[in-house]
Amino acid sequence: MKAFGKLHPVTLLVYFVMMLAFSMFLRNPVTAGLSLLGSIAFCCTLTDKREKLEDLKFYLPLSALIVLTNPLVSHNGRTPLFFVNGNAFTLEAIWYGVFIAGMIAAVLLWSKAYSKIFTSDKFLYLFGRILPKTALILSVALRYVPLMKAQAARLKDAQKTLGLFSTGSIADNLIGTVKVYAALVAWSLENAVETGRHMKARGWNAGRRTAFSTFRFRFTDAVFLAVFAAAGTLLLLAAAKGTLYFGFYPAPTPLPTDPISVSAYALFGGLAFLPFFTETEESIRWTCLRSKI
């Protein structure tokens, strides 16, 4: 289990909501850059070599596409570089494209980290309090997915040796697949009825029920939440006062460097790199501890 992921689901949810919101709504190149770097650093601790490579293959072309398309559709800006069909291709539009690309990449990477960290049981735990029955049904459904996948594979194998899928033609494959899936549906209905009876036999729907979870709210969670609350309030105040504002068109406004803005950058940078630091600290500590074993 990853160190950051060991935090309480509430703490994690607050963090991810905050990071996503600030990455999307703070129109400032410094915060956008920090958010992107922080999310990259975090994702690096979560993925293996192959996945990193695949991510590169996805994010680089996507970003390049955004950077290039923006000047094609937006002709604002004071510094035209050249003209396409009589429309200006401006430097400012390119800068704005870079900003948007960075922002989108950051939002996608934070979402990726969210899906890696926020596993189904955490989701169930949080929403189980509000909608206990829905949460249980989700848990049952989640159990069904691997079960059905395995059964589909078994059915397909069994039917292959009985002559289905044998000619290799598209029509034959299609007929075979339809037959197998029809049988799979029949099987899962049968299974679901029996599971339902077993749920009843084990006291489901017999009265008031508790929603048990293995999560604990620790002291660290309280500290983290307090930090989040303080940092979030300060950033919101700064944003509300408009000190963090940065405009791209028609010409870039000067980068805000007043004390409030600088402290907001520092605060936001700290937040963005928090998961990365937690992970690194944990892995360093673990290496030290392991050397004592």
Partner: peptide, 11 residues
């Protein structure tokens, strides 16, 4: 397979 209800052992 038909009598296990949830997705995690603890649950």
């Amino acid at each position: 397979n038909e009598q296990i209800v949830t997705d995690k052992v603890w649950h």
